[in-house]
Amino acid sequence: MELIYIPIIILLIGLSLFLFFRQKKQYKIFKEEIERNHSETAATIQEANESHKTEYEKLESSLYQHYNDEIKRINDNFVQKLNDKDRYIETLQEFSITRGEVETHNLLQELKYELVGEGVITYNEMIIGGNLFVPIWEDGNLYTRQIDHLVILPTGVYVIETKHWAGTVLHGVTKNNQNDETLSILLDNMFSSYELKKEQTVIIKKMLNKNRKVDGRSQLELRLLSYGNPAAQVMRTALELRKLLLKENKKYNFVTPIVYYSYSSDEENKVINYSENQNVNVCIEKEELAAYFKNQLAEENTLLTASDLENIYRILKAKNNIDR
C-alpha cells in the first residue's frame, strides 16, 4: 500500500513545482508588463509635457507679437494724429483763424478717425483742408475766395463756411418767408427793399451797454447785427472752386456748399433756419454736420477715386503752397 502512495506523492510534488514555476513566470511577465506600462506612461507624460510646453511657448510668442503689434498700431495712430495736428498748425501759421474754425477742424479730424476705425473709408479717402484760397481773375485783377474748411470724399468735394455766432441767428430770412410783424419792421430798418428780396442773415444778441447805466448798473440791450449772407458767400466760393477744378478735369464737377453754425445751442443761443435755398446745406451744431457726412457716405454714390482726391488737393496745394 505504501508503494502506491509514492507515485502519488511524486506526482503532487511535480505538480506543485510546475505550478510554482508557472506562477513565478507569470509574476515575472506581469512585473515586466507593469514596468513597460510605467515606461510608456512616463514617455507619454514627457511627450505631453513637451507638447504642452511647445504650445505654451507658441501661445506666449503669439500673444507677445499681438501685444507688440497693438502697441505699434496705437503708437502709429498717435504719431499720425500728431502729424496731422502739426501740418494743420503749420498751415494756419500764415493765416488768421477763429475759434469756431479750429473747433470745426478738430471735429472733422475726429470724424475721419471714427469713419476709418469703423471701416467706412480708408485713411486716404477723406482729405481735410483749412483756410484755403481760390484765386479768381476778373478784368485782369486777382481776387480770392476763402474756404474755411474743405472736405474731399469719394462722394464729392465739400466747401464749409463756418460761423461761430452767439445769440439768436435768423438764417436766410426775407420779408416774405416769416410772419412776425415786429421782425418785418426790424428788417425794413436794416435792409433796403432790394436787399430784402434776397435771403439775409440777422443776429439778435443781448449785450450790456456799459455807457448806459441806471442806478449804477449797466443796462442790457438787444442788438440786431448782420455780417452778410453766409449762404451766398459759400455758394459763390463753391462755384469758383468748381470752375477751377473743371479746368483740370471735367470729372471734378461735384462741389457742395455747406453753412455750418458751430456755436452750441441753449436758451439764449440758437439758429432758426428760414432759408428756402435748396442749393446750400445748413448744418447746426457738430452732431448735424457729422451726420450729414455719414449720410453722404451711406448713400455709396462714389464719384471720385482716392487718386482723384489726392489730385484735387494737389491742385489747391499748388494754388496755396501748403501741406495737408
Rank of each mutant, 00 (worst) to 15 (best):
N131T: 13
N131E: 15
N131A: 14
N131Q: 15
L132V: 11
L132K: 08
V134K: 07
I136Q: 08
I136R: 03
I136G: 01
W137D: 14
W137I: 15
W137P: 09
E138W: 00
E138N: 15
D139G: 02
G140T: 15
G140M: 08
G140R: 14
N141D: 14
L142R: 13
L142Q: 15
L142E: 13
Y143H: 13
T144M: 03
I147R: 08
I147H: 06
H149Y: 04
H149Q: 14
H149M: 11
L150C: 07
L150F: 12
L150Y: 10
L150P: 05
L150E: 08
L150D: 07
V151Q: 08
V151T: 08
V151A: 11
I152F: 09
I152E: 04
L153W: 06
L153I: 08
L153F: 11
L153H: 11
P154K: 12
P154Q: 11
P154R: 04
V157Y: 07
V157R: 02
V157P: 03
Y158W: 04
Y158D: 06
V159G: 02
V159H: 04
E161S: 12
T162C: 13
T162L: 03
H164P: 02
H164G: 02
H164V: 12
W165F: 14
W165Q: 09
W165N: 00
W165G: 01
A166P: 09
A166L: 09
A166I: 05
A166M: 12
A166N: 08
G167W: 00
T168C: 14
V169I: 12
V169Y: 06
L170A: 09
G172W: 01
V173D: 01
V173N: 05
V173A: 13
T174F: 04
K175N: 10
K175R: 07
K175W: 06
N176D: 12
N176E: 08
N177E: 05
N177A: 09
Q178F: 05
Q178V: 10
N179G: 05
N179C: 06
D180L: 06
D180G: 13
D180Q: 06
E181R: 06
E181L: 10
E181D: 09
E181F: 11
T182E: 05
L183S: 15
L183K: 14
L183P: 12
